[in-house]
Simulated scan of single mutants.
Amino acid sequence: MSGAARIDRRQLVRTAAGVAAGGVLVAGTGVASASASDSSSGVLGGWWIEHTNDPPADPEPGTTVVSIGAGGIIVSNDIRPAGSVSNGVWAMDGDRFKATFWGTTDLGPDMPAGSVRVRVRGHLSGGKLVGTFTVTGYDATGAQIFTATGTFTGTRMAP
């Protein structure tokens, strides 16, 4: 694999990590609303997610903002490093949650954009969302390019 391909793959993993982190956040808020009696602590709103890839992927931390709406819809936006907007869905299983997000990513010069699928698993712990994610990258034809994993922590954003 060429050096340029490695850099492109690293960026794809970083983008996917942001997407994953957003998914975890949304699902975690579902846990909060399911267990809280105060309706103000529901799942709707914005979350700040910090995420890190597991080795051998680039372990540089990233930040994603996630917005949660009614009906299990999740929208995430990579902030650091700046990246794509991703969309997905989530579901609860007891006090645990799972989510799947899809986003696009730039694979490099003269290459069509690729896509990433992020699968998230987590729970709410002490008012924070914590969990893991798996990112799978695909080229423009839909062929799998890589898989990576990581962890995240999320906090509710203040107005």
Rank of each mutant, 00 (worst) to 15 (best):
A20P: 02
T15S: 08
V26W: 06
V31Y: 00
A16L: 06
D8W: 02
V24T: 12
L12I: 09
V26S: 12
L25N: 13
R10L: 09
A20V: 05
G22W: 06
R10S: 14
A4C: 07
V24G: 15
V24R: 01
A34K: 10
S33L: 01
A32C: 03
R10P: 01
D8S: 13
A21Y: 04
R9I: 04
A34C: 03
G22I: 01
V26H: 07
I7M: 07
G30C: 00
T29G: 14
A4F: 10
R9N: 10
R6G: 06
T15W: 05
V13I: 15
A34V: 01
A4T: 13
R10K: 12
A16V: 07
G3V: 09
R9W: 05
L12A: 14
V19Q: 12
R9M: 11
A5H: 08
L25R: 10
V26Q: 04
R10V: 10
S33N: 00
R9P: 07
A4Y: 09
A21C: 12
T15G: 05
V31K: 06
G22R: 05
A32W: 06
V13E: 15
V24N: 13
A16W: 01
A21H: 00
V13G: 03
R6H: 09
V31S: 01
R14L: 14
A16Q: 05
A20M: 04
R6Q: 11
A27C: 11
A4R: 11
A27S: 05
G23F: 05
A21E: 04
D8I: 00
R14K: 11
R6Y: 06
A34M: 04
L12W: 01
Q11C: 04
S33M: 00
L12H: 07
R10N: 12
G3C: 08
A32M: 09
R6A: 13
A17S: 05
V13K: 09
V26Y: 08
L25V: 12
A20S: 10
R10I: 11
V31A: 02
G28P: 02
L12P: 01
G22M: 06
A27I: 03
A20Y: 00
I7K: 08
G23S: 06
V19M: 13
S35P: 01
V31G: 03
G3R: 10
D8A: 15
I7R: 10
Q11H: 07
G18R: 03
G18D: 02
T29K: 07
G28V: 10
A5T: 09
G3H: 09
R6V: 09
A5S: 11
L25K: 06
R10W: 10
T29Y: 13
R14T: 12
D8K: 03
G23H: 02
G30F: 04
Q11V: 03
R14E: 11
G22K: 08
A32R: 11
R6E: 12
A4D: 14
T29V: 07
L25G: 15
G30K: 02
V19E: 08
A34R: 08
I7D: 12
L25T: 15
S33Y: 00
G30A: 00
V24K: 02
A4K: 12
T29P: 06
L25A: 15
V24M: 15
A34E: 06
V31H: 00
